[in-house]
């Protein structure tokens, strides 16, 4: 099942793309394993996700914790803590 991943703020800059579609291995079942998989995939991922505790996520438009399952997800957004206002 292909999964669309969108990146924001410095996560996007470090990944070098705003979004991508990936085919995940079966072992990637939740947000935190997705982050670990991206960090291990290539040099950009390693830099972008060097500090996984700083990463926040939304699944299909809803903010979720890093333990949230990916089953049925269409789009995952990965981003740092927000700083608006």
């Amino acid at each position: 099942m292909p999964l669309e991943i969108a990146y924001f703020a410095w996560v996007r800059e470090r990944m070098g793309v705003a979004d991508e579609t990936v085919d995940l291995p079966a072992s990637v079942s939740n947000v935190s394993s997705l982050v670990a998989w991206l960090a291990a995939r290539d040099a950009r991922g390693q830099i972008a996700f060097a500090e996984p505790q700083l990463i926040r996520a939304a699944i299909d438009g809803v903010m979720m914790g890093l333990d949230a399952p990916l089953a049925g997800a269409r789009e995952v957004a990965l981003f740092p803590p927000v700083t608006g206002g």
């Binding site: 924001f8 981003f79 740092p80 927000v82 700083t83 608006g84 206002g85």
Partner: peptide, 11 residues
């Protein structure tokens, strides 16, 4: 709440 809850990032 806007500063902590809404998806906005300052550069």
């Amino acid at each position: 709440r806007l500063k902590t809850d809404v998806m906005l990032w300052k550069r």
